[in-house]
Amino acid sequence: MSSHHDLPHDSRQDPHRDSRQHARLIALILLAVLLFCPPLLVVIDGLPGMASLALYLFGAWALVIGLGAWLMERSATH
């Protein structure tokens, strides 16, 4: 029985992996929207320091790009 599970099923696992990949991407898009939108921005804007909002925006942007690169390149090599 266990040997049955070890058989390679590439053809059937691909769409499965695709849909997981898509779910991760959608989560990333939602995260990006959250990071770039007002509720969070208003909080950051209230922090002391004159460039905190600008620093936050660049940081969040870099984070989103980094995560995106990681997701895309990972799936490209698989």
């Binding site: 990949q21 898509h22 990333l28 898009i29 990006a32 909002l53 600008a54 925006l57 790009i65």
Partner: peptide, 20 residues
């Protein structure tokens, strides 16, 4: 102020949707 960044954050979101 920082509103100039929006012109580039919008396309960033659009590029994330590239696979769909």
């Amino acid at each position: 102020g920082p509103s100039f960044l929006l012109i580039y954050l919008g396309p960033t979101l659009a590029m994330l949707t590239a696979p769909f």
